[in-house]
Amino acid sequence: MIRVFDQGIEGAGLFMIEFGDIVPYFSVYTATLFTFAIIFTLLATFSIPEKQMDIIFGGDAYYAKEIKPQDLRFQRFVAIACGTATLGAVVTGDIFNFTLFAAMIGITNIGIVASSRSHHVLNAAYQYGIVAMIACVPLFGGAAMILATTGTLSIWSLAGIGAAPILAKILLLLGVMGEGMAPFYIGKAEITRAQGAPFILMVHVSSLLLFLRVVEIILVI
């Protein structure tokens, strides 16, 4: 099979979908990321959340917290939205679309964290929100810099010519890291207090897949 963009980075190209000038492409690499995004979105859609075990201090007693379905409706919705944004981000063939999807992943991540009622978790969501907002500046700044130097944001036109400035790539990476990767995820240690394992997991899935995609974009352009 033919390697996508003639580069030995992500394996064979499988197929692409042409939406006008927006051309998402599936290489072996992006298709794998896409598959995992689908699997985890389905898990978030259909699995019931776990019941956390709570220990009563001063004794041997413990009980399982009950969760009402209506408490989880919003969290599930945001988790699915996050999964959908991830699906877009991992296959899009356009850097502007990628940054938009990345920002949307940041927003939905805040949503997943903020739908908990615990005071600690809400605090964490607030801090997380601030970091994600700040990270939008380098994210869009990187894309703007690429547009200003090359005149295009299509990965198809940029691939392999090495025209994108290194600073723009660094900004893009910083932006994506701020949207959810270490070491900016102040909120993540706290969100694990929140219940709803399949939804909380979506925060990590989206940020890891986003990171993997941005590494690919940086290597390709």
């Binding site: 030995g8 980075i9 992500e10 394996g11 072996v28 690499y29 794998t32 990321l33 995992f36 985890f40 997991l201 990590h204 899935v205 890891l208 990171f211 993997l212 590494v215 690919e216 290597l219």
Partner: peptide
């Protein structure tokens, strides 16, 4: 691709 192996390794973290 080694990058894909890296991706699978990260998914192991998840």
């Amino acid at each position: 691709s080694l990058l894909l192996l890296f991706a699978l390794y990260l998914i192991h973290k998840i």
